[in-house]
Design a protein around this nucleic acid. Structure first.
Lengths: 202, 202, 202, 202
DNA sequence: AATGAATGAGCTTTCATTCAT
DNA sequence: GATGAATGAAAGCTCATTCAT
């Protein structure tokens, strides 16, 4: 990778970091492109070399943050030795939930902005082309290793993700209606249900 | 009540109606004060005779919509004869949930915008000064009639409201993770828990 | 007419005057809306209360200038007593040509910007609704008074206008290939030809 | 001529071709330097190695297009054997008119942009230094061969060119007020007049 | 010579808010 | 009370131009 490419990567990263800070502290609508560029120490026009507009950046940011979240979960799984697919997936779910519980700003940001469409385009296409493996690849591998067949692995993944994000939002932020610890067993039970329902049994 | 006051009331109402339509159809940030005034058939300047700005109107709108929601619940209760406080409150909760289930635009609007602060100021202060009784009065009466004592009736009320709104949001809009009918028993159980936890037993 | 309406009329006029000066001295593309507003002594935003954008103003300006040009021709005709239609039209043509010869900036502006579409919409619709008669009305009256019938009076009018503007442009501005005085006889001959060709003889 | 020079020549040519396409299809003001460079398959910065700015390129383009037009006329003349100067010049004029009639985009471009100043600088200075003879040289030779003397050969040339371009514009594009065939005799008559008027008779 | 990332001035446009009528 | 013309700050975005590589 050339020096110039690295510099570009860093500029893009600066914009993402600056925007995340501003978005979460003062809201997207209250944040101007000028603000973002200023915070990232570059000219306004430079913004447009990296993103189409504020909402494009927001979508990319969601992708980046979600990717990071999931990659950590995959990495955590590497150190474990489960046999059953359900156990692996629930382990990753637990990793994700704990990460969100530790970073409530991230949770609030993702909860407000993550939508099916954005997520799907993020995970199915390998946008993060610089990395040697995508989260989606890891997920597909997991399914293959299990030797089992599923109707629609993409939708299955999304259901799990959506369930986690919506169910955990209030619980983590407000501890209502139950504590996170009390919620987990039921949540994981539901995840097992989703996987079972999607499996094609021969 | 004078004719002039009535006229003013109607203008205010027009603005609220116009704003609700615009807010829910195109979003708050995409709605200008000019749009609202135009839709309400009055001049831009007139807006400022009734509301400080767009967000003031939004807050008043939430109060108005929430008040309406709750008043309907109180009215429904009038035709019933329960003895126990819990049954009365759950009956009202059921009324509210059913209203939201029937009017998903309203649900989406309230879910996006209802916050503790806004709600509290709405219910505790009797902003709706034209009505002879506020929802909060009805609620306080209910508690008094029961002959029981509670630590913090305001927070108790809010907890119930928040629980209903957050728990029902995904369920009503997306039927996830369970159907509304499946959710209700657990929800009502939790409401009973909240009331019990707040009661001061002598 | 109220005082306010008069004031508005004057503001609009100011913008037209300012824009004409700037357009003809430095070109349309080199003139910003900011420039126009500044020259007209008002805020940038005010511009948009009167015109959609720079090109809207330009079109209105062409209409206004062309209308003025034609109205003067009609007014000049009033003091004359010709019997034959051709003589009347040529008299007006001569008035228009002389006006353009006296105001070469106007000629250059109209020649650069006048297009069939703009002109047609200006003359057929009575945009200048404050005036008691439009040029087009005067023209139609002229035809009616003659007692003669024509295939397509609108196109006939346009042909004459287009002929005058294109034929006179170089002649007036550069005296090439002939002087204006030498051109006139041939031009007026051609106008007679156009009228004759459009007449329906019974 | 070195290989490097040829490459440069080609790059320059690419820019001219790209710009002509864009200028005539979407307008000069709507064409950015970025657009031109992209269409010419090179980087934005490269543009500045060949032209000062957009308007410089436009002027060079006019020169190039006009030169091409005239060179073709000169080449056509080579195959002919006229004795009288007037016949030669009118033959070339006819060649030019026919070219413009066949390429209306070119006509529109030249009509909109050709001005005395640009043309003069193009023809008098020999900008096209790569060619072994300029159009102007050919023209001067023609005069010399005739053995006749003229007051101001440059202005005489320009008058003829201007006459052709202005007279033909509407005729070719809109067939108004006469057809090209009907116009030609009078046009060529006028050209003879111009030459006669410029001749110094001893 | 060629590149294209970076710049920032400058444009158009919107809009909350004020205020004379 | 009601109006809507006027304002000007501030937003999004474009683009000619520069310059390090």
């Amino acid at each position: 990778m050339g020096k110039l490419d690295e510099k570009k990567k860093m500029k893009r990263e600066s914009l993402l970091v600056a925007a995340f800070t501003l978005f979460t502290s003062q809201g997207i609508n209250e944040t101007s492109i000028s603000d973002i560029a200023k915070k990232a120490n570059m000219a306004k026009g430079t913004f447009y070399l990296y993103f189409k507009d504020k909402f494009d950046l927001r979508d990319k940011l969601i992708v980046a943050k979600a990717t990071q979240l999931f990659r950590k979960a995959v990495d955590d799984l590497d150190g474990q030795s489960f046999d059953v697919l359900e156990d692996k997936i629930i382990f990753m779910a637990d990793s994700i939930i704990n990460q969100l519980n530790d970073d409530k700003i991230l949770l609030r940001f993702l909860a407000k902005n993550l939508s099916w469409g954005v997520f799907q385009s993020a995970m199915v296409m390998e946008i993060e082309s610089d990395s040697d493996y995508s989260f989606y690849d890891a997920y597909v591998n997991l399914l293959k290793e299990s030797g089992r067949k599923f109707c629609n692995p993409e939708i299955m993944l999304f259901l799990i993700v959506e369930l986690i994000s919506s169910a955990c939002h209030d619980v983590i932020l407000y501890q209502e209606p139950v504590t996170l610890e009390d919620l987990k067993p039921e949540l994981y039970g539901t995840i097992r249900d989703i996987i079972r329902r999607q499996e094609i049994r021969s």
